[in-house]
Lab assay of single mutants.
Amino acid sequence: KYSDMIVAAIQAEKNRAGSSRQSIQKYIKSHYKVGENADSQIKLSIKRLVTTGVLKQTKGVGASGSFRLA
């Protein structure tokens, strides 16, 4: 599940300011076997996790910027 992968990526990075979408994508692609549409799936999952309150956006708008666990 992409949401689990995103949470794992943010936990692994341990950046106080949060993790960027690009760094999350890079982590997921190197640690998991994902399909061609992974980028758009990650983007959608990040937006969903922010609206449900699992992630907090520290910089930027939408799916860009930095995110950390709430």
Rank of each mutant, 00 (worst) to 15 (best):
1 K>L: 12
1 K>Q: 09
1 K>H: 11
2 Y>C: 15
2 Y>L: 08
2 Y>Q: 00
2 Y>T: 03
2 Y>S: 01
2 Y>P: 02
2 Y>G: 00
2 Y>H: 02
2 Y>W: 15
3 S>K: 10
3 S>R: 09
3 S>V: 12
3 S>A: 14
3 S>Q: 10
3 S>Y: 12
4 D>K: 08
4 D>R: 09
4 D>V: 10
4 D>H: 12
5 M>G: 01
5 M>N: 00
6 I>F: 01
6 I>Q: 00
6 I>S: 02
6 I>N: 00
6 I>M: 00
6 I>W: 02
7 V>Y: 04
7 V>A: 12
7 V>H: 03
7 V>Q: 03
7 V>D: 00
7 V>G: 02
7 V>L: 12
8 A>S: 06
8 A>N: 05
8 A>L: 05
9 A>D: 01
9 A>K: 00
9 A>T: 01
9 A>Y: 03
9 A>N: 00
9 A>S: 03
10 I>G: 00
10 I>A: 02
10 I>V: 14
10 I>T: 02
11 Q>T: 10
11 Q>S: 08
11 Q>R: 13
12 A>K: 04
12 A>V: 05
12 A>R: 04
12 A>N: 07
12 A>M: 05
12 A>C: 10
13 E>P: 03
13 E>H: 08
13 E>D: 12
13 E>T: 08
13 E>L: 15
13 E>F: 08
13 E>I: 11
14 K>P: 09
14 K>Q: 11
15 N>D: 07
15 N>T: 06
15 N>K: 11
15 N>H: 08
16 R>T: 10
16 R>H: 12
16 R>P: 15
16 R>M: 11
16 R>S: 14
16 R>Q: 10
17 A>P: 04
17 A>D: 12
18 G>T: 03
18 G>N: 03
18 G>W: 07
18 G>Y: 04
18 G>C: 15
19 S>F: 02
19 S>M: 10
19 S>K: 04
20 S>Q: 04
20 S>F: 03
20 S>L: 05
21 R>Q: 13
21 R>V: 15
21 R>T: 15
21 R>E: 15
21 R>Y: 15
21 R>H: 13
21 R>P: 11
21 R>C: 15
21 R>W: 15
22 Q>H: 09
22 Q>I: 10
22 Q>D: 12
22 Q>L: 12
22 Q>R: 08
22 Q>C: 14
22 Q>V: 09
23 S>E: 10
23 S>R: 05
23 S>K: 05
23 S>Y: 15
24 I>D: 00
24 I>R: 01
24 I>N: 00
24 I>C: 04
25 Q>E: 13
26 K>W: 15
26 K>E: 14
26 K>M: 09
26 K>N: 13
27 Y>Q: 01
27 Y>P: 01
27 Y>M: 01
27 Y>R: 00
27 Y>K: 01
27 Y>V: 01
27 Y>T: 01
27 Y>N: 00
28 I>K: 01
28 I>S: 02
28 I>C: 03
28 I>H: 01
28 I>A: 00
28 I>W: 15
29 K>A: 06
29 K>C: 05
29 K>M: 09
29 K>W: 05
29 K>L: 09
29 K>Y: 10
30 S>A: 12
30 S>V: 07
31 H>W: 03
31 H>F: 05
31 H>D: 00
31 H>V: 06
31 H>I: 05
31 H>C: 05
32 Y>P: 01
32 Y>D: 00
32 Y>C: 05
32 Y>G: 02
32 Y>E: 02
32 Y>R: 01
33 K>P: 10
33 K>Q: 09
33 K>L: 09
33 K>E: 12
33 K>W: 06
33 K>V: 11
33 K>A: 11
34 V>W: 02
34 V>Y: 03
34 V>T: 05
34 V>H: 02
34 V>P: 03
34 V>C: 07
35 G>M: 05
35 G>N: 05
35 G>C: 15
35 G>Q: 05
35 G>V: 04
35 G>D: 10
36 E>R: 14
36 E>N: 13
36 E>C: 10
36 E>A: 13
36 E>D: 10
36 E>Y: 09
36 E>L: 11
36 E>I: 11
36 E>M: 09
37 N>W: 07
37 N>C: 07
37 N>T: 06
37 N>Y: 07
37 N>M: 05
37 N>Q: 07
38 A>K: 04
38 A>V: 09
38 A>H: 05
38 A>C: 13
38 A>Y: 06
39 D>P: 05
39 D>C: 14
39 D>E: 10
39 D>H: 06
39 D>N: 10
39 D>Y: 10
40 S>I: 13
40 S>D: 11
40 S>H: 12
40 S>R: 14
41 Q>D: 10
41 Q>I: 11
41 Q>C: 15
41 Q>M: 14
41 Q>V: 08
42 I>E: 02
42 I>P: 00
42 I>K: 00
42 I>D: 01
43 K>G: 10
43 K>D: 15
43 K>N: 15
44 L>V: 07
44 L>I: 11
44 L>D: 11
44 L>Q: 09
44 L>G: 07
44 L>M: 11
45 S>E: 15
45 S>K: 05
45 S>Y: 12
45 S>L: 09
45 S>V: 14
45 S>C: 15
46 I>P: 02
46 I>N: 00
46 I>F: 03
47 K>W: 15
47 K>R: 09
47 K>L: 11
47 K>V: 10
47 K>D: 12
47 K>C: 14
47 K>P: 04
47 K>I: 13
48 R>P: 00
48 R>F: 14
48 R>Q: 11
49 L>E: 00
49 L>I: 01
50 V>H: 02
50 V>A: 03
50 V>Y: 02
50 V>G: 02
51 T>R: 13
51 T>M: 14
51 T>D: 12
51 T>Q: 15
52 T>Q: 14
52 T>N: 10
52 T>W: 07
53 G>Y: 02
53 G>S: 02
53 G>A: 03
53 G>Q: 03
54 V>Y: 06
54 V>A: 04
54 V>F: 08
54 V>K: 05
54 V>S: 02
54 V>Q: 04
55 L>N: 00
55 L>V: 05
55 L>H: 01
55 L>G: 00
55 L>C: 02
55 L>T: 06
56 K>L: 15
56 K>M: 13
56 K>H: 09
56 K>A: 08
56 K>E: 12
56 K>W: 11
56 K>N: 07
56 K>C: 14
58 T>K: 06
58 T>R: 05
59 K>G: 13
59 K>E: 07
59 K>A: 09
59 K>P: 06
60 G>L: 06
60 G>D: 05
60 G>F: 05
60 G>Y: 06
60 G>R: 08
60 G>M: 06
61 V>P: 13
61 V>L: 09
61 V>M: 11
61 V>A: 13
61 V>W: 11
61 V>E: 12
62 G>K: 06
62 G>A: 06
62 G>F: 06
62 G>C: 08
63 A>L: 11
63 A>R: 10
63 A>N: 12
64 S>A: 09
64 S>K: 11
65 G>R: 12
65 G>F: 14
65 G>S: 14
65 G>M: 14
65 G>C: 15
66 S>C: 15
66 S>W: 13
66 S>T: 13
67 F>M: 03
67 F>N: 02
67 F>A: 02
68 R>T: 13
68 R>A: 12
68 R>P: 03
68 R>D: 04
68 R>H: 11
69 L>H: 03
69 L>V: 06
69 L>Q: 03
69 L>R: 02
70 A>F: 09
70 A>R: 06
70 A>M: 07
70 A>H: 06
70 A>T: 08
70 A>I: 08
70 A>D: 05
